[in-house]
């Protein structure tokens, strides 16, 4: 009789140095709850996204309920609730960028990454392209965020060249 394949055990994010770092962050605030946003950032940096199990782990450390943590995760658009491509591409299309051709830039990213649609990951797993609201750099339209790299003055023509740097 063959056993059903076991689900990989969840490996906690907050052990060793990372736990120490979180404890140092907790000391900056009078409540444990206040360390929630920083803790979620740490999870995302370590794992690329925030799973339900990670939410439970964070909830336990900060004395919150998993439902509460989920409520906060879902409020903030930068927290990923699903795995995303290796390079997460955020293209601003709000009015100031829009006036300068942001929608063409977005279309170029979709085309050259092979992403079928907004929010979908390319078949090779390399890219996810999303449309975002104002990135706070409107004088350098079009503003694009790839991972942690903030790109300015992006035009549709520059997109293939840019993507060569993100393989």
């Amino acid at each position: 009789m063959s056993a059903a394949p076991e689900k990989a055990a969840y490996e906690p994010v907050f052990t060793g140095d990372r736990l120490k770092e979180l404890e140092a962050i907790m000391a900056r605030y009078p409540t444990k709850r206040a360390a929630l946003l920083p803790a979620l950032w740490m999870v995302q940096q370590a794992r690329g996204w925030i799973s339900e199990e990670a939410m439970v782990e964070v909830a336990e450390i900060l004395d919150l309920t998993p439902a509460y943590v989920k409520g906060v995760v879902t409020f903030y658009t930068m927290y990923h609730q699903h795995p995303v491509g290796k390079h997460f591409i955020q293209v601003c299309t709000t009015t100031p960028c829009n006036l300068c051709g942001a929608e063409d830039v977005l279309a170029a990213f979709l085309k050259h990454t092979g992403c079928e649609e907004l929010g979908a990951t390319s078949p090779d797993g390399k890219y996810t392209v999303v449309e975002v609201e104002c990135l706070g750099a409107c004088g350098f339209a079009t503003a694009v965020l790839i991972g942690d790299d903030f790109l300015e003055n992006v035009t549709a023509e520059k997109v293939p060249e840019i993507l060569k740097r993100y393989q």
Partner: peptide, 29 residues
Amino acid sequence: LDMYIHRGAGAYICGEETALMNSIEGRRG
């Protein structure tokens, strides 16, 4: 004098002063 950075996570509304304070407290903004 202590000074710390609190990083937001994508929500325009957190610029509103009371939403910002909620966000620092670890709440929805």
